[in-house]
Amino acid sequence: MKSIKLCSALILFLALTVGCEKESIESPEMELTEKQKPKNLYDFVHSGVDLEAYINKVQKVEAKSANLNKSHAENSSLDKGAVFFNTFCNNLTVEGFEDGRIAPDDAGIFYGPLNSLSWVGKFQPNEIEVGVEISSLNPDSGKESIIGLYGQKVRSSYSKVIYAQTAGDELVIRFVPNVQSVSLEILSFPYAMEAGTDGTEPTPVPIPEASQEVTIEVTFSTGLVQEIVKASFSGLFWGTTGKETISQIVLSSSHNDAWVGVDNIAFGLCEDNDADGCVDYEEDVLNDGYLNSNLEATVHLGACNSGVPNLETLECGVWMSDLFDQVEGGSYLTEGLRRNAITTVANNLVKEGLITQQQKASILGCN
């Protein structure tokens, strides 16, 4: 009897063991092996995958992500938003890569940098706007990497786009000369797939939150500023403007299975009618204290040249000569009141550290 019970227990144990092993074997892999993953975006596009079907599935996955529904105000501290740029910065130069020679469902790769002088097969000289240069760098080696031009179907839109060719590589955008206003569309092309079983094709799975994250590093004249935004396959609008000049923007994906891309790079200076370096409006609010500033080299009172440099005050777009012009254009009951008003302006400039007592005397000498 004992032997029968022991045999039954052994049979039950073996059945459970085999059942567990079978369940483990049949469970689908959640990640592709390194051999199954494409080495770069170009290989993936040319792998025979149904690109349109893949894009549609990825976009549906993205649409379910609550993180991508955040407003730009929550998403980015520097970002001014598309409404601001469309309203006040529609005078910027835009590079959208539309002159590139590529079929809608194709891709072409080449080494950068890509600029107005480039002759790389897909682009010839003067087909990239003067003033912007795009390249890709391997962050580990610091060496130049390959970049790719991709047709409209790769983005599922009307527009061609530039991608870093290898996941993890940086896209570097340089501006020569430096600019004060930049907007662009940031793209993250995820390769979030679940390996198929029994010969079935891999299918998209919910995209890890990290694969949506793109780090933006902006080199301002005063230093570096970094922030992370939630990009997407469809593209995220991002833009910044101000008095500080911008020499370079670096985009990098924080997820090894996502390629970072860029499109519609707009650069220059937002509407600044008097060219004083202060944007006229920000968020529909007047930002420039004087829309038609007096930018003369030195302060004049009437025809008298004080010889004192005309500097911008602590208020954006307001120059020393603007203040004196305003006083001189006023109406006063007596000449003494006019002189007092000019002296008051000069005293305030001394307090703000913009002029010295000696320079104040030079200005008042013209009074």
Rank of each mutant, 00 (worst) to 15 (best):
A346W: 00
K351C: 12
N347M: 05
K351N: 12
G353N: 05
I342S: 02
W319T: 02
L333G: 15
R339G: 05
V350P: 13
N340R: 10
G336Y: 11
L323S: 10
V327C: 03
G353V: 02
E335D: 02
T356W: 01
G330R: 03
L323N: 04
M320F: 01
L333Y: 07
N347S: 12
D325T: 02
L337P: 11
D322G: 01
D322T: 00
Q326Y: 09
E328H: 00
G353P: 03
L337A: 13
N348Y: 14
N348L: 08
D325Y: 01
G330Y: 07
E352L: 14
R338P: 04
L333A: 13
F324A: 08
A341N: 03
K351W: 15
L354G: 09
N340C: 11
N347A: 06
Q326T: 12
G330K: 08
D325A: 01
V318Y: 10
A341H: 02
K351F: 10
R338M: 14
A341E: 13
A346L: 07
G336T: 07
I342K: 01
V327F: 07
F324K: 00
Y332I: 13
E335Y: 03
E328I: 02
T343F: 12
R339I: 06
A341V: 03
G353I: 03
S321D: 10
E352I: 02
N348C: 05
T343I: 06
W319F: 12
L354R: 02
G336H: 06
T334I: 13
T356V: 01
K351E: 15
N340E: 12
Q326E: 11
G353E: 04
L349Y: 05
G330E: 13
G336W: 08
G353L: 04
S331A: 15
T343M: 04
S321K: 03
G336A: 15
N347K: 12
E352P: 13
Y332Q: 09
L349Q: 10
N348W: 09
I342D: 07
F324L: 13
I342W: 00
A341G: 10
L337E: 08
V318R: 12
A346F: 00
N348A: 10
M320R: 05
K351T: 08
D322P: 01
I355N: 05
V318K: 05
A346R: 00
W319M: 02
L349A: 05
V327P: 14
E352N: 06
L337M: 11
F324I: 15
Q326M: 10
T356G: 06
F324M: 04
R338S: 09
K351M: 14
L354C: 01
G330A: 11
W319D: 05
T334M: 13
G329M: 04
R339D: 06
T334D: 14
Q326P: 15
Y332N: 08
V345I: 10
E335H: 11
L354E: 01
L354N: 02
S331V: 09
L323Q: 07
E352S: 10
L323R: 04
K351V: 14
R338C: 15
M320A: 04
L333H: 11
G330T: 07
E328D: 13
A346N: 00
I342V: 14
